[in-house]
């Protein structure tokens, strides 16, 4: 709130919505593993990651609702927006696939979030700086979880190696959007509120390359770079995800327990 007099509140609200939706949608995807993981222990581990992300989403959506000034709560934003109104990147909404695909998504996204929150701790916006300082510890663990599994699947059996490589290759195109020159982030980066996404790429790529090499895997490539999530243009499975996420709230408005 400290910068509200200098910065366009609606821009800050949009940025909070972008980061909040990233966390919310990935949380929802990870929750789908609950009771379906290869091991009971992994069930709990993935649910823990999902809960961390949900906590981040709550803070960010609440902040977005406050700045927006239309009286919308975190629940209104999560459960009453339509598909096209979500601002998350395409990577986080990609289906879970097999366990290796989920781990690939986690590796890409947690490493990105780690770099993002590390930088966002210096934000001139006290709300973002506070959230980042707390969340960076959570996502450091998320990254470690993904790294440990990538190493074991990559350097495991022939089949685990193949699946891990396929997971990395499948999701690689969606990583470009993480570092795209988004107009909201760029405008806010000028005043130090947001982080210029482009600046995060070198550290992210170095970190990913080191893990992939240690896991005896191959760095993916290719020039296809789908994007559109920040503009509300989502991929095929997103409608189902949103429908499932919102079903309870829409049937029983204000349900609580």
């Amino acid at each position: 709130m400290s910068t509200s007099s200098l910065v366009d509140n609606s821009l800050v609200a949009q940025y909070a919505l972008q980061l909040g939706d990233d966390a919310l949608i990935l949380s929802q995807r990870l929750s789908e593993w609950c009771a379906h993981s290869p091991e009971l222990e992994e069930d709990v581990a993935l649910a823990n990651l999902a809960l961390d992300l949900l906590g981040q989403a709550r803070t960010l959506l609440t902040y977005a609702g406050t700045l927006e000034g239309r009286g919308r709560s975190e629940d209104d934003l999560a459960f009453l927006r339509t598909e096209r109104e979500f601002r998350n990147v395409l990577l986080v909404e990609q289906p879970n696939g097999d366990f290796a695909v989920t781990i690939a998504r986690q590796l890409y996204f947690a490493t990105y979030q780690y770099e993002l929150y590390t930088a966002l701790r210096e934000s001139t916006d006290a709300e973002f700086a506070g959230l980042a300082a707390k969340a960076v510890k959570e996502v450091a663990y998320h990254r470690d979880h993904a790294v440990q599994w990538t190493l074991r699947l990559g350097d495991g059996t022939e089949e685990s190696h193949r699946r891990m490589q396929e997971g990395l290759d499948l999701l690689w195109p969606y990583t470009a959007e993480l570092f795209a020159a988004d107009s909201v982030a760029l405008a806010l980066a000028e005043t130090g509120v947001a982080v210029d996404p482009r600046t995060l790429r070198p550290a992210w790529e170095a970190s990913i390359a080191a893990v992939i090499e240690a896991a005896t895997l191959t760095m993916p490539g290719g020039s296809w770079q789908p994007r559109g999530g920040r503009a509300g243009e989502h991929t095929e499975g997103f409608g189902l995800l949103v429908g499932e996420m919102q079903a309870l709230h829409r049937q029983f408005p204000g349900a609580a327990w």
Partner: peptide, 20 residues
């Protein structure tokens, strides 16, 4: 107790199950 492929993963599973 927890199931895990090796000691490092066991530590992480234990962290998730018992120190939340």
């Amino acid at each position: 107790s927890v199931h895990a492929s090796d000691a490092e993963m066991a530590l992480r599973n234990a962290r998730d199950l018992y120190t939340r």
